[in-house]
Design a protein around this nucleic acid. Structure first.
Lengths: 233, 233
DNA sequence: AAAATAGTGTCTATTAGACAATATGTC
DNA sequence: GACATATTGTCTAATAGACACTATTTT
């Protein structure tokens, strides 16, 4: 049985919207063991028959709790990367999940930090293993789905404005987004009950106050629109 | 190292369009070892450091060649299922791929057969492990993407008619599809060079002859439309 | 009042879909 | 010619997007 076995782990690409510049950040964890001891890497856990997990999803939950110490608004499996080179110890597998966090999620301690995704993808920050690739794949998934779904709203706090929604969508897509279109989408989401209109207002530094929308606490899955936001306009 | 290891495999959900009724069939392989020896199951291979595969994708290719003995027009990873119960030997992982075959793909020998997908999902045919779940997930992925992409065309022979395209799309989506819409989509695919108009005709039993389209031999990835085919009409 | 920002209304473009009209073959 | 089937053309509906216009607040 050991001859048919391989190292396997679950890694979490937990994404947060940085409040100021509305750019994506990924949660990294300082490694507690070799290889790459004490380097910043994706939080993850080993999976095997001796760990307490009954399933991959359960292992992902445990990784979130034990290592990342955050509660995501949404989580989904993205894929599995497996080859002979990604881990110096030999053939290994990593099933990686995308988790979307409330921007208010903060981390304490020396072992956790949020790092700008763009600087990782540009290789300005270098991660061990193939973690940069996993982050890239997760962001590609996020971008693809963001065009035709309400997925970016999982990156917003429970109460948010139209401008927040535009910013989140732009961060996910990596390009400008039409405000009118996003307003219409929020109207649609209001119709189906995916978001609520609180009736409350919020005063920006200057100008007319903003309507405050609210999303539901539970992850009911993203709403799928019938058309995509278009590349140019 | 053996204490941090787990059983892992790659399984292939190879789908074919049954020529007559235009229903989806999946390729099954009679198992050559325990557990579930000589039962029909998904073709797959073990992955670990001792097998010749450099990567998961390479293992998937090997599974196709050695076990399934078919060459797909398209293949993509769908996901990974892992838990303590799916294999009687203990905790195990299966990364499973969706492969789309030419309907002319046939199999010879006693160890391979195409089986109607619907009867598997309805549990009229019972498969070992959680293979029915893997097939279901692959079909869900196929249905989701078929609504907004040219994925169903990978199930067609190189030369096909509009009616073939309608049939394939219906089989993938599991519901009726508007013929006019599909014609327009084929026009769009012709514009971008994803399909070609051969100029040739084919005579059905009765009536006006059908135009014959042709797709390119290489898998350039599905074309993504900006809108979905709509649920009712 | 001026400036800034939010939100609304109107128009266009695109594409799915319904369906009538036409083309082209077999019997 | 009758019939079957394929294809084209016309119209509608829905929604993304552009943009002018209005609303509401601060300074």
């Amino acid at each position: 049985m050991s001859s048919i076995a391989v190292m396997a782990s679950v890694d979490i690409v937990a994404l947060r919207l940085e409040p100021e510049a509305q750019r994506l950040e990924v949660l990294l964890h300082r490694r507690e063991r070799e290889p790459h001891l004490s380097q910043w890497a994706l939080p993850g856990v080993i999976v095997n028959g001796r760990t307490p997990d009954n399933s991959l999803d359960a292992a992902a939950e445990r990784a979130l709790q034990e290592k990342a110490q955050v509660v995501p608004r949404h989580m989904e499996q993205v894929g599995t990367e497996g080859n002979a080179f990604r881990d110096p110890r030999g053939w290994s597998l990593s099933t990686y999940y995308m988790a979307l966090l409330d921007p208010a999620q903060s981390v304490d301690g020396e072992r956790l930090a949020f790092v700008d995704v763009a600087s990782i993808l540009a290789r300005k920050v270098v991660l061990p293993f193939d973690h940069a690739v996993l982050i890239q794949r997760a962001c590609e998934r996020l971008a693809a789905k963001s065009s035709y779904s309400s997925l970016p709203l999982y990156l917003l706090p429970e109460r948010f404005t139209v401008l927040d929604a535009v910013g989140a969508t732009q961060a996910c897509l990596g390009r400008a987004v039409n405000g009118t279109s996003l307003r219409k989408r929020l109207d649609r989401l209001k119709e189906v009950g995916w978001v609520l209109d609180t009736g409350e207002r919020q005063q920006p530094r200057l100008g007319r106050p903003q309507q405050i929308y609210r999303h539901l606490p539970a992850d009911t899955g993203p709403f799928l629109f019938e058309r995509s936001l278009l590349p140019e306009g």
